[in-house]
Amino acid sequence: MVKLNLDFRIKVTTEYLSGIGSTSLAKKYRISEEGTILLWASRFQKYGMDGLKLKHRKNVSTIHAKEPLVELRLIG
């Protein structure tokens, strides 16, 4: 999935909140899922600009975190 920058999200969200439909905006800006626009609008209304910022969700697991699970799997 392509990450869309903050300025673009603000532009699309502002247009949506001004009354332009999500389907029209999705077609206009070639956004594959109109639900993306609805999500941005919802996050903007709830959290303001912070809701539109990218969130990096890097799941970091170390061998130490996985070790008890592996042991449990081998024993069980």
Rank of each mutant, 00 (worst) to 15 (best):
V2Q: 07
L54D: 14
T13H: 05
L72G: 12
A26D: 05
I75Q: 15
K11Q: 12
G48C: 04
K11I: 09
L25Y: 03
R9G: 11
R43K: 11
I63G: 00
I20T: 05
S22K: 10
I31K: 01
T13E: 03
L4C: 01
T23C: 02
H64G: 10
S22A: 11
L4V: 07
E15I: 08
D50F: 02
G19D: 03
V2G: 06
H64R: 13
L52F: 00
I10N: 00
A41D: 04
E67L: 15
N5Q: 06
T36I: 09
T36F: 04
F44I: 02
Y47K: 06
A26F: 03
K46W: 01
S22H: 12
I20A: 05
L52I: 02
L17E: 06
K58G: 10
L4W: 10
R73I: 14
G35K: 06
L38A: 01
L17G: 00
L25N: 01
L69M: 10
Y47V: 05
L17A: 00
G51W: 02
H56A: 12
L17I: 03
R73T: 14
E15R: 11
D50R: 11
E67G: 05
R9Y: 03
I31M: 04
K53M: 06
V12E: 01
R73C: 08
D7A: 13
K55W: 07
K66T: 12
T62A: 08
H64L: 11
G35E: 12
V70F: 14
I75E: 12
A41F: 05
Q45M: 11
A65G: 13
Y16K: 09
V2R: 12
E33P: 08
L69K: 13
L17R: 08
M1G: 15
D50H: 08
M1N: 13
K46T: 08
L54E: 13
